[in-house]
């Protein structure tokens, strides 16, 4: 039987698309750098595994949010697949950021007991 993911994992999963779009809005990047950079930028809050990252990147690319580009930067090293936001990806980022802000604001009020 498949193990049910815990609530924290579920929260991360829900924020994954937004996190990736927001990270790539800073500039094009590739999988290895995204894994390290995202964990660092979120103080470990979005420390991903390859199993979560690659399918998420694949889906975003397939849905036209990301534009891939293979770059061979260093001779003797493997080419890296850089992802950058498309116009559609930028629009989606704006939408998700707005929804996130509203959600976070509401939840903060709820958790903090504000009226």
């Amino acid at each position: 039987m498949a193990r049910r993911p815990d609530a924290v994992s579920e929260l991360r999963r829900g924020a994954l698309e937004l996190a990736l779009l927001a990270f790539l809005d800073r500039g094009p990047s590739f999988s290895g750098a995204i894994l390290d950079g995202l964990a660092e930028a979120t103080n470990g809050g979005m420390a991903l595994t390859e199993g979560a990252l690659y399918p998420a990147l694949g889906r975003l690319e397939k849905n036209g949010m990301l534009e891939p580009e293979w770059r061979k930067e260093v001779e003797g090293r493997r080419a890296r697949k850089y992802y950058s936001l498309t116009d559609e990806g930028k629009e989606r980022l704006v939408q998700l950021s707005k929804a996130w802000a509203e959600l976070a604001d509401g939840m903060q009020k709820l958790i903090g007991g504000e009226d």
Binding site: F30, G32, A33, D36, T49, E50, R78, R80, K81
Partner: peptide
């Protein structure tokens, strides 16, 4: 995809810990 995973592993200096078949 295999090239991408290989490049990612090369950059990070470690082989992914994820179950490869599941990935």
């Amino acid at each position: 995809f295999v090239d991408e995973v290989a490049a990612g592993a090369e950059y990070r200096g470690v082989v992914p810990t994820e179950d490869p078949r599941a990935l």
